[in-house]
């Protein structure tokens, strides 16, 4: 009896979390005690802002673009559906790294050309300067690439959410005289977004990890700073420990928030 209860109590403990937090505390205390770790911490921390900025900006932009792509994907108007499906399939079929190179070295010159053509009168009159590839710094190009890539994933999440909403409620809205657009905004999207909130939040965790890809363009994020530091000091072990520590702090805490959110939504739905 008693033994069973102890076993049940022990079974309920999230042991992986205990381990993670324990290791985290060990890592931090070691770092604070060890002078060379302190230096590495200070150096890598300088990349934290860049990593977060790239992740947050790309995520916000891909939510907006993804919503429109998802709406187009669920649209009854065939051309819209076809175009968005084409885009989504194309982007999802490419490695994120290839999208990154593509936007950085093909997309940026092309974008400069397009902007120059569109704004030709202004440029000729001297009101603004002509664009060049280097008008867009690499951090901007990297954020653009992540946005275009993640918008495709997020569009599919929105589409699934939109399709999860009960058809009967849509009919009821139409029967009350709401237009298709009013029905989407007032009835479908509030429920769709709520249903996919955890999935959307998980994409933020994913984009934080994928933001490390921007290091290949030399953008000074956590990974890039760590890479350069390790290469110049040969302290690979210590440096990548610190780099991993930073990512884990962000991703694990966010994952836990997502789980809490999921539980809360489930509770509310059951009420």
């Amino acid at each position: 009896m008693k033994r069973n209860r102890v076993a049940a109590a022990l079974g309920g403990v999230p042991w992986w979390l205990v381990l993670v937090v324990g290791l985290g505390i060990v890592a931090l205390t070691t770092a604070l005690a060890d002078a060379s770790y302190r230096v590495i911490f200070g150096a890598v921390a300088k990349g934290f802002g860049v990593t977060m900025t790239v992740a947050v900006v790309s995520y916000a932009a891909s939510l907006v673009l993804g919503l429109f792509l998802g709406l187009a994907r669920a649209s009854r108007f065939r051309p819209l559906r076809e175009v968005s499906t084409f885009y989504i399939e194309l982007v999802r079929g490419l490695p994120m790294l290839v999208i990154l190179y593509y936007i950085a070295f093909v997309g940026a010159p092309a974008l400069a050309g397009v902007l120059n053509a569109l704004l030709a009168p202004l440029i000729r009159s001297g009101a603004i300067e002509a664009f060049q590839s280097r008008s867009f710094d690499f951090a901007t190009r990297a954020a653009l690439a992540l946005t275009l890539g993640y918008a495709a994933f997020i569009a599919e999440i929105f589409r699934a959410g939109i399709e999860s909403v009960d058809r009967g409620q849509i009919e009821a809205a139409h029967a009350l005289g709401l237009s298709p657009a009013q029905t989407m905004v007032r009835v479908v999207l509030p429920q769709a977004i709520r249903n996919v909130l955890p999935a959307l939040a998980n994409e933020f965790v994913a984009i934080i990890k994928d933001s490390a890809l921007v290091s290949v363009l030399g953008v000074q994020d956590i990974t890039q700073i760590g890479k350069v530091y390790a290469a110049s000091t040969f302290k690979f072990f210590e440096t990548y420990n610190v780099v991993a520590f930073f990512y884990l702090c962000m991703t694990i805490s966010l994952s836990m928030l997502v789980r809490a959110l999921e539980r809360r939504l489930k509770r509310e739905n059951a009420r």
């Binding site: 009960d166 009967g168 409620q169 009919e171 009821a172 809205a173 029967a175 009350l176 005289g177 709401l178 009013q182 007032r186 009835v187 509030p190 429920q191 709520r194």
Partner: peptide, 25 residues
């Protein structure tokens, strides 16, 4: 129109269900 499966808007309170269309339409 009244449906077999009620089709009330699940994300709105009963009061909001009834007041939505007059407000919006």
């Amino acid at each position: 129109m009244v449906f077999q499966s009620f089709n009330l808007f699940a994300h709105l309170s009963i009061l909001e269900n009834v007041s939505l269309a007059p407000r919006i339409v």
